[in-house]
Design a protein around this nucleic acid. Structure first.
Lengths: 365, 365
DNA sequence: GGATGCGATGTTTACGTAAACATGGATTAG
DNA sequence: CTAATCCATGTTTACGTAAACATCGCATCC
């Protein structure tokens, strides 16, 4: 009898472990997983467990001799606080969940890294919550820490509307901050200044003398991609420039390469703004293979400023995103919401700036 | 009275939160963070909380009408199981901690990604435990989930011996699997077949007719880097080839570029084996800028086979690492240790294979 | 010098869950 | 028809911690 209940996705439903066979240790003969509780420490130190608790939490009101005795007992017994009990009692998990769809894009990784660092500094741990959308391979029943109470707050690094069709649902009442997505009306959003970054990139190319700028956009469902594309178009239009047809990739290098192949056929193309550095790498390769010299024949600007960008051939002019700052503000945001217990909305913008390198030049004469 | 206790790093010691000011909600006036317990659901459904527990865990022995009633109550009340209570009772956190030093190297990220996916499939969540070594900026007192009991197992993606000087310590009694490090005598290790991968890379170059192969190694403290370098040297020696001086980078593209600049000065260098793809990118750039054509003048082989490698200029011949398999075996390993309660040792090797692309060719005539 | 207060420590209790055990009604075997 | 079962459900208890409250002794104040 596999789980046939029609309501398998009901709140609190939990996957019975693979049929219940051979799941537990054969029997309890093995050494019981080290269990040293406060009570043990207390007994060993000749104090009450409450005093141990005070020492453990660094609270005042414990005389130094006692404190030393307790600390010694902790060390001798190898005591480690049980965070489950602590969380149960305090209602805080000191954990922030980070929901993301993939670690394949550098932007996500950089953001995650920054969040982790910032959170650690505040005494919070990060739990990764991978999201599988139905169209993916069937990672069905994937365990998510959101179905249950296990995180104090959530940071979402993906398009919120995609969450609706995914395996996780944002529980109500949990502080949320969303990165680079269109959710300012529902959640607090931290975003890099996509518009300004795009403006700098396109302006840079136009100022170099290019008649217009082509664009390789990110995937349709990405808000950041859309924002960059919209801004690109708006600038060209407001400047009275022709707007070339837009190409689309999926952030991957390979998709950038494909877009580059298409651009090779456009003899009029002298400048390209690519929505991220990874795709730009593919574009560069296509141009190289097609004999189109960068930046002599065509200029390329990327977005992200990943560490590798300065070693592309040629080194890539790109828009720098301050992922550290973004991650920091995310953590700050959820912590603030936790403390005030008040959900927030609206968007915070993190500045971006252009990093001119060797992939841009005036158009060929 | 800041925390002056000399034993700040004692077990169980916990950083008092930034002086205790303005940490808690001003007062408890706000809506109490949604608290729906099993008891609430039970009351609402007119059953005992134990029955709710059974339904929640998908246990048998609940008649369908009752089950439906409970599920309905859960939905209506918005019940979410409290994982802290569950963990406290069961002693399992259903969480695996992943210790790593940086997310800047693609290898780490790919491994982490694979681990996350595999773990999710088994119903485990991943907590990231960033490690700060003292030489880093002073992320002192960074909270780690290892000081306390909060993970069921640990996967280490870094050199174990570096842990000794870091802010985290591996607690005893917790299942551990180490990735690509020299710890087979203390822990279970999952490693890609560094030696075989290196052999294939070097052999490939020699077979193409190169007299010898230069090497750009990873950082000194890296076991993987050392292993690759040792194998490289051993092959050359056993084959009676001259062993050129070894260059060293730190896995970063920039360091690869620096190594490439040095190699430019070696007119006799026709083949280079670079210890990872990111550094290889830097080497390619240096060669390009120096007018050394790849692969016409010099051949380059990388290691990792990151997604971008096929779009390097030229597309990089490299050794493919099966990160998915590696991650999978890590999770498998810790779960097995958890179930049997028996620590393991020894090394598991994941096969690697050469992916020939356009960066290698016979030496110039 | 006795009331006062405060600082150090102990005692009680509740957090939410799930294992272990208990109950009671229905079904079936003899 | 009764006893033995069995199944659905209820009751009790313990997990480790920390808040709240209680106590006790000593120093201070007038």
């Amino acid at each position: 009898m596999m789980s046939q209940h029609p309501a398998d996705d009901a709140p609190g439903q939990r996957r019975p472990e693979s049929d219940g066979t051979a799941t537990r240790p054969a029997n309890g003969v093995h050494a019981p997983r080290q269990r040293v509780s406060m009570a043990d420490v207390a007994r060993h130190a000749g104090v009450s467990s409450q005093t141990v608790s005070r020492v453990s939490n660094g609270y005042p009101g414990v005389v130094d001799s006692t404190r030393q005795r307790v600390l010694a007992a902790m060390r001798e017994l190898g005591y480690r606080p049980n965070s489950a009990a602590r969380a149960l009692k305090s209602g805080e998990f000191r954990t922030i969940g980070v929901i993301l769809f993939t670690l394949a894009t550098t932007g996500n990784v950089r953001t995650l890294e920054a969040i982790t660092t910032s959170a650690a500094r505040e005494g919070y741990a990060i739990t990764i919550i991978p999201v599988a959308v139905p169209t993916q391979d069937g990672v069905h029943g994937a365990f998510t820490r959101l179905g249950e109470l296990a995180v104090d707050a959530v940071i979402v690094i993906m398009e919120v509307h995609l969450l609706d069709t995914s395996t996780v649902t944002l529980p109500p009442g949990v502080p949320v901050v969303v990165v680079s997505a269109d959710a300012g009306d529902r959640y607090s959003v931290v975003d890099t200044d996509q518009a300004d970054g795009t403006r700098q990139a396109v302006r840079h190319l136009l100022d170099l003398g290019h008649r217009t700028v082509w664009h390789v956009a990110g995937p349709e469902e990405s808000f950041a991609a859309g924002h960059r594309a919209d801004t690109w178009r708006a600038i060209l239009e407001s400047d009275g420039r022709p707007v070339p047809p837009m190409l689309r990739g999926d952030w991957s290098t390979e998709s950038g390469y494909q877009a580059g192949l298409q651009l090779l056929r456009e003899s009029g193309c002298t400048a390209v703004f690519v929505a991220n550095d990874q795709m730009a790498l593919g574009v560069l390769r296509a141009f190289h293979e097609g004999g189109r010299r960068v930046p002599h024949d065509v200029s390329v600007v990327g977005f992200d400023d990943i560490a590798e960008a300065s070693s592309f051939i040629p080194p890539l002019t790109t828009v720098h995103q301050d992922f550290t700052e973004t991650g920091h503000r995310c953590v700050e945001g959820v912590l603030r919401q936790m403390r005030t217990d008040a959900p927030e909305r609206g968007t915070t913008l993190v500045p971006t700036w252009l990093v001119p390198r060797a992939s841009t030049a005036p158009p060929p004469a």
